[in-house]
Design a binder for these strands. Sequence first.
DNA 1: ACCGTTGTACTATGACACTAGTACAACCGA
DNA 2: TCGGTTGTACTAGTGTCATAGTACAACGGT
Lengths: 164, 164
Amino acid sequence: MTLVQPSDSEPGKAGSAIAFQLDPASGVPTFLQLVQQVEHALRLGYLTTGDQLPKVRDVVADLAINPNTVMKAYRELEHKGLASGRPGQGTFVTGTLSQAGLPEIAGLRRALQRWLVDSANAGLDEDGMVALFSSTLRDFRERGAAAESRAARSAPREVGGGVA
Amino acid sequence: MTLVQPSDSEPGKAGSAIAFQLDPASGVPTFLQLVQQVEHALRLGYLTTGDQLPKVRDVVADLAINPNTVMKAYRELEHKGLASGRPGQGTFVTGTLSQAGLPEIAGLRRALQRWLVDSANAGLDEDGMVALFSSTLRDFRERGAAAESRAARSAPREVGGGVA
DNA sequence: ACCGTTGTACTATGACACTAGTACAACCGA
DNA sequence: TCGGTTGTACTAGTGTCATAGTACAACGGT
């Protein structure tokens, strides 16, 4: 034991740290799940420059995975310019991905919560909701692409999706 | 050349066949993406007993993947009792997963479409929408679990997620 | 200066996903 | 019955993911 006593919101953690969570059934590689969760938090503004990510050894203990796996995730984030490790201190966010304002996101989130409740009331389970979201999003993407190809005769546009 | 001429809706395909689509960036194994897409279509009632799945060789040609990979997906579906291969004919749906009525789903889908439009108007890109959905769903799951653990003192319940 | 914390590097090993290539089996229609 | 279509089986090889285990480097506080 040292000086830190574990609790729900551990002391010594700067900013709002996120809590990683794994979904073994998803088929997504562990290290990628970590990367994606950080990116999601960055997109939604739940994490910003200066915030600390969970310490490698903490993640290892919480998720029962190998340090190398956590390192692979953090290295990927560093490579994308989103985080940086500081030996002796921790790993910290160095970039951001937020695109919409926090209030807008909060509103969208509430609307989505209502939709989830409606879905549950309609008899859908969680997998069903995911299925419907995936399907609707795919449609949305295709419609958008179709609309663009209709309008882009003279204004070609890049559609690449990297984080750059 | 044989008798079939490729077009947008190929002749010779019974029922409503689904069109597979891969997302290389997702990290999800190819064969699992195929399985999940069929399961999603089954959940939403877009595919039902008797419908034909894309022929192995068609999938191979369309997605530029190996027959073994498609077979792995179809074998998994067969193992779950959802599909069955008939040499010389194709692979057909043998089970269903739909839980809510088609009209309910259509309504939920429209609501979700509106939400996607709103999100786009708020400045969110597709990744942002996925991020917000994932985050909100995770909350939803935790809230539900909390509500259950509050009410389930005397009525324990299974939460397993398999397709059985 | 020392010690503990934290990030980082390295090798080796097992499991899994995907591929290439070949061959065979079941079914349908002419 | 024959030929084409389709599903299926098999082997072998490659790359990635995750693991265990060990060791080192950078930083802060006392």
